[in-house]
């Protein structure tokens, strides 16, 4: 069940290899272990009331998912999962939650109505997705293929714009197969822009020109410059709540 969902989430042929078929072997045991940890911790994230615990369960759930990727022979995806998600959530846990969580925000209480509603929506979505995942024939078939070569080299080459991996059987032929140099490069521009945005929002700004909130609102009149006017009118519009 989990594998089908994962196969739909990350379309890598290697993942299909993870389904257990024959007698119990260590592969299956590990698979069941990781799957159980991933699911149980995911449920625990939702049910927990304490933010720090939620983050901790999230780390466990994501780490178990990385284990599933390793089992499926997608070691590159597994490593990325560990580095980005597990590492990222850990940083979030340490800095974001532990440093900022103060008494009123540590515990998050959900009302019963919300829980019921969320449960219904979640169950409906799960039912639809499970049905979808099991409907596709190739995703249902248990298969235990040998994982050929380390997957990281072709992925690395693809990120440099050259596809050296063999085309998937049945995939349509193409003159130039798309490498991922453009996304790889353009995302750096994106990250730069997003960093600037995050820094802007996070910065406690010490303004050289005092903001119009701080000066008296009496500087209204045709003589004010557009900039001052915009600033002060923006603050005048605030529906309270400037701290």
């Amino acid at each position: 069940m989990i594998t089908s969902l994962l196969a739909s989430a990350v379309p890598m042929s290697g993942l299909l290899a993870a389904l257990p078929v024959a007698a119990v072997n260590w592969h299956s045991v590990l698979f069941l272990l990781f799957a159980a940890v991933a699911c149980a911790c995911a449920v625990a994230v939702v049910l927990a009331d304490n933010v720090v615990r939620m983050a901790f369960y999230l780390v466990l759930s994501l780490a178990a998912t990385a284990g599933l990727f390793f089992l499926a022979g997608a070691e590159f995806v597994g490593a990325m999962q560990l580095m980005i998600y597990v590492g990222g959530t850990l940083v979030l846990l340490v800095f974001g939650v532990m440093l900022t969580a103060q008494a009123p925000f540590v515990a998050i209480k959900t009302s019963t109505g919300d829980r019921v509603l969320a449960g219904m929506v979640g169950a409906a979505l799960l039912a639809v997705l499970l049905q979808a995942a099991f409907r596709v024939e190739p995703w249902r078939r248990p298969a235990m293929a040998a994982v050929a070569a380390p997957a990281a080299t072709p992925i690395g080459m693809a990120l440099l714009g050259v596809r050296v991996d063999e085309p998937v059987a049945g995939a349509p032929p193409a003159a130039v197969r798309s490498g991922y140099l453009l996304p790889f490069e353009i995302v750096s521009v994106h990250l730069l822009v997003v960093l600037v945005g995050a820094a802007y929002l996070a910065r406690a700004k010490r303004r050289r020109t005092p903001r119009a909130i701080d000066v008296a609102a009496s500087s209204v009149g045709p003589v004010v410059t557009a900039r001052e006017a915009a600033r002060s009118s923006a603050s005048a519009l605030a529906s309270g709540g400037q701290r």
């Binding site: 822009v193 945005g197 309270g240 400037q242």
Partner: peptide, 29 residues
């Protein structure tokens, strides 16, 4: 022309917009 680029472009257009929406810092709204 590729779903990877579709997703990436949508994110590139959206994420800076989130920050832009919060441009007037200190205003609750």
């Amino acid at each position: 022309n590729h779903l990877l680029m579709v997703f990436m472009a949508v994110e590139m257009a959206s994420v800076p917009s989130y920050a832009l929406a919060g441009l007037l810092k200190g205003r609750k709204a």
